[in-house]
């Protein structure tokens, strides 16, 4: 996997250029903080008691939030273990399989980006 090349001179689209700020660590940190603040806001909104679920557990404050957080974290850690068990090389079923061979380039329109 190639590291981002800071001296890359190849053209990119104007929209893409504006979005490159997203790769700066400061911006990333700010986005995470923003996300956390949004979460807090949603949690606080629960205090207004505007929800009445069909199961009692739904009425716990912030139930959905914590459930979502826990579910996501569980999935990530579970999959790490799962990959260790069932992960295999791409040519596990031989080299005559779709995973190990390239998509025939003649069927595609491979093209580099250019300004014009």
């Amino acid at each position: 996997m190639a590291k981002p090349d800071t001296k890359d001179e190849r053209p990119i689209s104007p929209t893409g250029r504006k979005l490159t700020v997203l790769e700066q660590p400061v911006v990333i940190n700010r986005m995470i903080i923003g996300l956390a603040l949004f979460c807090a806001l949603l949690f606080l909104a629960d205090l207004a008691h505007i929800r009445h679920g069909k199961f009692a557990v739904e009425d716990l404050i912030g139930f959905y939030g914590f459930y979502g957080f826990a579910a996501f974290a569980f999935i990530i850690f579970a999959t790490k273990a799962l990959r260790a068990v069932i992960g295999r090389d791409e040519d596990y079923y031989g080299d005559r399989v779709v995973d190990a061979e390239d998509y025939p380039p003649t069927e595609l329109e491979l093209k580099e980006f250019s300004d014009d």
Partner: peptide, 20 residues
């Protein structure tokens, strides 16, 4: 209520993603 539930579920999960 429904919008709030769904937003909580998704945004907290997004936060989990960002932190991980």
């Amino acid at each position: 209520a429904h919008v709030l539930e769904q937003m909580q579920l998704l945004v907290f999960a997004l936060l989990a993603f960002a932190l991980l």
